[in-house]
C-alpha cells in the first residue's frame, strides 16, 4: 500500500466524470437547484450550455444520478448519431419496446402514446452539438408531442449558438448558462474535493497566491484544473520519493505549479 501523502490527491483529480465526485460549490449548487426545479416543471426542453470545462457534463450526470431514483431517466453521454439507432434505443430503454421493423418517427410516437407514463420520461443528451440537424428536428417533434422531456447540453460557441437558435429558441422553456469558475470557487472546489477524501494536509497547502496562479493558468476551467492538479500531485509524489527536502508543506511551490502546467500543455515552453 502506498504511504505517500500525494498519491491519493493525485488520483482524486483524474479527469473522470463521476456524480459521486460532484462538489457542492455555491454557484454550481444554485445552478443545479434551478435545473432540478425546471425538470419538475412541464417543460418540453431544457438547455444547459457553457464553455468547455464549466461542469455541464458533471451537472448532467449528477442530475441523472439524483433523478433516476424517482422517475424514468435516460442518459446519453455518448451521442448516437444515427437516427434509426437513436429512436430504436429510446423505444427500447424508455418504453421497453424493440420493434423489428424500421423505426420511423411516426412509429416511435405511436409506441410512446401507447405506453403513456404518468411522469413524462426524461432524456439527458450530452454533447448535443454532435447531433445532426435532422435528428435534432425529430427530437424537437418528440418533445412537442410531450412523449419525452429532453435536457440537452451544448458547448457555447458561435456555431452552437446558431444551432440553439434554429432548433430550440422557440421551444426551450428554460436555458441555464454555466460560467467558468473564479479563483475562490476553484479553491472551494479543490479543497472540498480533498477534504472529502480526508486529504487535510494537502488541502491546507493551497493559499490564495497558488489559487491565483492556478486560475490564471486554467482560466477557471474545471477539466483543465483537474489535469493540472493531477500533474502537480504527480510531481509532488516524485519529489517526495526522490528529494523530499525540497517539499514545503505550508504552501505549494509556484515553480512546480508552472512545471505541471508545462507538462499538461497549459504553458508552452
Amino acid at each position: 500500500m502506498e504511504c505517500s501523502l500525494f498519491s491519493k490527491p493525485r488520483d482524486l483529480f483524474l479527469d473522470v466524470v463521476n456524480p459521486r465526485d460532484y462538489v457542492q460549490i455555491d454557484s454550481v449548487s444554485h445552478m443545479y437547484q434551478s435545473l432540478k426545479n425546471s425538470v419538475q416543471k412541464p417543460l418540453k426542453m431544457i438547455l444547459l450550455f457553457g464553455r468547455p470545462g464549466t461542469g455541464k457534463s458533471m451537472l448532467l450526470h449528477k442530475l441523472h444520478h439524483d433523478l433516476s431514483k424517482h422517475q424514468k431517466v435516460l442518459m446519453f453521454d455518448i451521442p448516437i448519431v444515427d437516427e434509426d439507432d437513436f429512436l430504436r434505443v429510446l423505444a427500447q430503454r424508455i418504453f421497453g419496446h424493440s420493434p423489428r421493423e424500421v423505426m420511423t418517427l411516426t412509429r416511435f410516437l405511436e409506441i410512446a402514446e401507447a405506453v403513456a407514463y404518468a411522469d413524462v420520461p426524461i432524456v439527458l443528451l450530452d454533447e448535443a452539438q454532435l447531433y445532426s440537424g435532422s435528428l435534432m428536428e425529430k427530437i424537437r417533434l418528440i418533445s412537442d408531442a410531450r412523449a419525452i422531456k429532453f435536457v440537452i447540453t451544448l458547448h457555447k460557441t458561435d456555431k452552437e449558438d446558431i444551432i440553439a437558435k434554429e432548433h430550440f429558441q422557440t421551444r426551450i422553456w428554460e436555458s441555464i448558462e454555466l460560467q467558468n469558475a473564479t479563483a475562490e470557487e476553484l479553491k472551494v472546489y479543490i479543497q472540498k474535493k480533498l477534504l472529502k477524501a480526508n486529504c487535510f494536509d494537502v488541502a491546507n497547502m493551497f493559499n490564495d497566491k497558488n489559487m491565483k496562479l492556478i486560475t490564471a493558468l486554467t482560466k477557471g476551467n474545471y477539466r483543465e484544473t483537474n489535469k493540472l492538479l493531477f500533474s502537480l500531485f504527480s510531481l509532488y509524489y516524485w519529489y517526495e520519493e526522490n528529494n523530499p527536502t525540497l517539499i514545503k508543506y505550508n504552501a505549494l511551490k509556484l515553480k512546480w505549479i508552472e512545471m505541471a502546467a508545462i507538462h499538461t500543455g497549459l504553458i508552452r515552453a
Binding site: S231, S234, W238, Y239, E258, M259, I262, H263, I267, A269
Partner: peptide
C-alpha cells in the same frame, strides 16, 4: 511517468523567456 529533469529545464527556459 514524469521526466522531472526535462520539465525543470523547460521551466527554466520558460522563466527566462517570460
Amino acid at each position: 511517468m514524469l521526466d522531472i529533469r526535462n520539465l525543470e529545464r523547460r521551466w527554466l527556459k520558460y522563466k527566462i523567456k517570460s
